[in-house]
Design a binder for these strands. Structure first.
Lengths: 220, 220, 220, 220
DNA sequence: CATGAATGAGTCTTCATTCAT
DNA sequence: GATGAATGAAGACTCATTCAT
């Protein structure tokens, strides 16, 4: 792995573990055993590193949530697979949502990129819900689709942060991530077509089981 | 107002406006026209101020969400009045949720207090939902009550933060707060008893109207 | 002497001795035996110190060159006394002209103040020359007054810098300053009224004698 | 042009435009599209580059100011042509006089070269003035020749620097250079033989006209 | 109660220079 | 000749905190 990539990886790891504000460029360099000058050879400043991380975040997110249309979209399982992946992205970049406003309001350029990604996500998510409506999987009143997508996004975005605050140990387990998926299913549950109830129950049970499985805690 | 209280008030205001990390003890003192030494006469350190603010936060929250039982609880309007108040508390102490993990994991003592308050809140909120179930206002399956309270807490807690990130201007308007209340109502909507639908619709419309009302933006 | 003044004095001394670019805020603090933080308690930044020094420079200059009109102005000796003083100011603030452009173009606000002082000086100097013209001491053609003042200013301003470059030892002696005064007299010599020649010669000889007197070198 | 020469040319340009202290070796390399390592293949260090620039400066100066004796020296026009050229050299290497002391006192070897060039110049200039004295063009008292050459050198050397400081825009126009020549003529004017007055006036007018001609500003 | 000068470790960043390839 | 990654000492500046008065 090239030094530039190692810097990004180390920064991401340390940001997630200790919070972006508590990780200095010197920490990152020391963690990698390189000189601070070398870090600044590859990046103009700390913000530049965050931009690069955000780029990775956005790519991961797009990959995890490319709306699949057509026959495949018939199965809710497909969609929830995506949810699964998205939660993982949220976990991988949890430092970002832990200080969302600090990071964004300090850097308008990044903020614009963030808003663009959010808009794209919202559009895709709404399209997905409409598709599921059309396929008679869900039955969401039209005027509720938009607020519901917002709520879903909020729960997904802040789940890790919120759960991390719920115990003195900042580390959360993988089980907690699955619990987050189950929570999203629960939010959608009232909108499922009656005859799809069994299907949903199965999915839901799957995630609740995973949530009950003891697992090594991720480091915060 | 005593100096000690003025310090707390100024700190809260500045934390909310500029983020806790960006407000130094010297800023607070300068804002009040007092010396840094004086500030440290009243508080051992910055964290001590945050403790005091948290205490206020907890008190406000308790006042806003004392579970009312008995005849008054019949009317959902009463409860939603509380919701209204809670959102205002979230607004008043928005800096806290904007950096929840940083603030808590830096100070285990504060973290314990936070967890205690959260537990209390969760208990009260669940009691409230059960009461509304009993009064045939809501019909929430028993095993969904706990996850639903968590989701409600999340939406309430992070609403301000999340909305502030949705535009380049960190300030949000009062309308956005009302929108948050409407969002909570929407989360509960699927669980309302059919014959209470009209009542809910009225409440909901009330908040949506307020959310549509243009208003001066609060300064974030 | 207050710390704030000691900082200004130390900065001026070190700037003069080593060049402004080679003197860091840490050097200044260490030289005074104070912490860097203390220095920044008194001044927002290095430029702020330079501003304060410039203020002193401007005050010294005004004091040294208040145009005396009326009977006293009759004697050229009075005026050359001023020149004497001005050269001393140039010596006291020699770091400034040693890096004139760097310092000014880095700080437009300071540049404006500099230009204002320069204009004032030019006006006063021209008034002085006209007065001496009127008193039949000098006989400068009108259209040459302005360029002559400029040349005088240049010689006065850069004399120290130029002389410091003329030997490997950056320190210059007081004698060199007197030589500068003599040089200015020489510039004016062609414009003296014939019958004032003796007077001039006497003055000139005075300074040349001083210039010949061995003296401890100032530390550059 | 060889890389080595391109480095010198780029360094000179950037030094002049931005000041020697503000131009890093990396800037120079980047400006040329070469690697810093390559720059250090050709030059041991930054000072080495300055040495090479100084060498060019000295050559230009010698070329511009080779004292022409014999019949050609009869015409003052010839000499002022040289002055013209010298001012251009001062312009071409203006960064050097803008930080004269910093550059020289940091590098004794360079300083020695500088002093040698200066001595040579002084000798030549004095020879020139004596020649013009002999040809009855000028009539400078013997003991004033040496101080006058010094003053001339000062005005020539610092003219660009001084003028650049006289406005907020560091760039100066070609007109300002011609003004400098006119200023030198003015310094000599009192020493011109009466019957050469017309000749001088013509020359002087020539330069003043050029100085009045609007021209694109050079980039400082 | 209050002042305000002082501390010092720490932050981000720069840059001349080196060196393996 | 040339690359470009790497070094590390140094610079300007910050800030929670202390303490003599």
């Amino acid at each position: 792995m090239k030094t530039k990539d190692r810097i990004v990886a180390a920064a991401l790891q340390l940001f997630n573990e200790q919070g972006e504000a508590n990780v200095t460029t010197n920490h990152i360099a020391a963690h990698l055993g390189i000189s601070p000058g070398n870090l600044y050879y590859h990046f103009r400043n700390k913000n530049d590193i965050i931009h690069r991380i955000f780029q990775q975040y956005a790519e991961h997110l797009r990959k995890s949530f490319t709306p699949v249309t057509g026959p495949a979209s018939a199965s809710p399982a497909v969609w929830f697979h995506y949810l699964d992946a998205i939660f993982y992205v949220m976990w991988e970049f949890r430092f970002f949502y832990a200080n969302l406003n600090d990071i964004l309001h300090r850097d308008p350029e990044l903020h614009k990129k963030y808003l663009a990604v959010q808009r794209e996500l919202a559009v895709n998510l709404q399209a997905l819900l409409r598709e599921l409506n059309a396929q008679q999987v869900l039955a969401i009143p039209d005027q509720e689709i938009e607020p519901l997508t917002q709520t879903l996004k909020m729960v997904v975005s802040f789940w890790v942060s919120y759960q991390s605050a719920q115990s003195l140990d900042p580390r959360i387990s993988q089980a907690v991530l699955y619990e987050g998926v189950a929570r999203v299913l629960l939010l959608l549950k009232p909108y499922f077509h009656p005859e799809k109830g069994a299907e949903l129950a199965k999915l839901s049970e799957h995630y609740q089981a995973l949530a009950r499985t003891p697992s090594d805690p991720f480091h915060k």
